[in-house]
Amino acid sequence: MTSISEESFMYVVCVRIAGIEQITSINEYMHYLKFLSKEKKERLSRFNRKEDFLRSLVSDLLTRIMLVEKFNLSNMDIRISSNSYGKPYLDGHSVEFNVSHSGEWVAAVVSRFPVGIDVEEIQPINVDIARSFFAEKEYAEIVAKAEDEKLTYFFDLWTLKESYIKACGQGLSVPLNLFSFSLENEKIIFENNHSQEHYYFRQYQMHNQYKLAVCSSYPDFPSEITTWSLEQVLDTAKKLLYAERNG
C-alpha cells in the first residue's frame, strides 16, 4: 500500500465539459470505465442520459487522478465507500475528497482534512424557497437585495450551505436553517447552531454563470483553482491511471 505525502493539504480542480449536450454517443468513453471500480462501472452502465454519464465518469476519473497525483496513491488501492448518510470516503487512507457537478462543470477537492465542495449553475429560480429552507436572516438578506442581485446571492448562499453539509458528512439530515451565512465585503460570516466543530469556507470565481464554494475543517485554502478541459482529464487518465493499473 502506498503512502501519503506529508506536504499535501488541499487541491481544488474544476473541469469544463464543454458541449456535452452535443455528444452523439457515449461509446467513445466506455473504455475509460476500466479505471473505475466494479460498482461504479455497473452504476454508470445504467445511466440513460449521456450528460449524466459523462459528468459522473469525469467526477470519478478526476478524483482518482488527484489522489494518485497529489497523494502518491495507487489507483489500484483506491477503494471508495459511503457512510450512512451517503458521503463517499476512501477506505484505508486518511484522505478526504468531495465532488460536485452542474451544467458544463465538474469540480473536485482532495485534502488531508474533511472537505466539501459545491458548484451550481445560476438558473432562474423562485428565491422565495429560501423562506422555507434557509435561516430567517439569510432569507431577509436575499429579499433586501436589489432585484438583479437576488438570484446571484441565493446561489452564493446555496453553494456555501451545500459545501458545509457535504464536509460534515451528514447530508440533508442537517436542517439548512440550523446554520447561516452572510457575505460582507467578500468576507464569509458563518453562524452555526448545528455543531461546535470549526469549519472554514472559500469561494472561487470560475465562470460568471456559476458559483463555487469549498468548505474545510482546516483554515488554509489554495489561492486559486486549477481548471482543466475534458481532453486533459481523459489524456491524464490514460497516462497516469493506466500506468498505475499496469505498474
Rank of each mutant, 00 (worst) to 15 (best):
V58P: 03
Y29D: 04
L67T: 01
N192E: 02
E191P: 07
I125D: 08
I122M: 12
S102P: 09
L176W: 00
L230M: 15
L151P: 05
L57M: 11
Q123S: 12
A18P: 13
S216F: 10
M30C: 14
T152V: 08
I117C: 08
D128C: 13
A237T: 00
E224D: 11
S82F: 14
V143S: 14
D235N: 09
N27V: 10
M1R: 15
F155C: 12
F47K: 14
L241G: 00
F47T: 10
S100G: 02
I129D: 00
V110M: 02
E147R: 15
F97N: 05
A144N: 11
A108T: 07
T159C: 04
L230S: 11
P114R: 00
W228E: 13
S37I: 06
Y89G: 02
S5D: 09
E42T: 11
Y199N: 06
L157G: 06
F201M: 04
V99A: 06
I142R: 10
E147W: 07
E191I: 13
N83D: 08
E39D: 09
V68E: 00
L157P: 03
K238T: 11
Y204H: 05
I165H: 05
P222Y: 03
S182L: 06
Y32V: 08
S195Y: 05
P114M: 03
L36A: 07
Q205I: 14
I4E: 06
S132Q: 10
C14Q: 08
V109Y: 02
K87M: 03
F201G: 09
F133R: 00
T159F: 06
I189P: 06
Y85A: 14
I80N: 13
N177D: 09
N192P: 04
Q22E: 08
V99K: 05
R202F: 10
D220C: 15
K150H: 05
F133L: 00
A135T: 03
I129E: 01
E69P: 01
R55H: 10
V13F: 07
N75R: 04
H194E: 11
M206Q: 08
S59M: 15
D235E: 10
E136V: 14
C168K: 11
E231R: 02
S223C: 12
I165C: 01
L172W: 06
I20E: 12
E96F: 15
R79A: 13
F113C: 11
A146T: 09
K238V: 14
G247C: 07
E231C: 04
V15F: 14
E96I: 12
F155S: 12
S111T: 00
F134L: 01
Y199S: 06
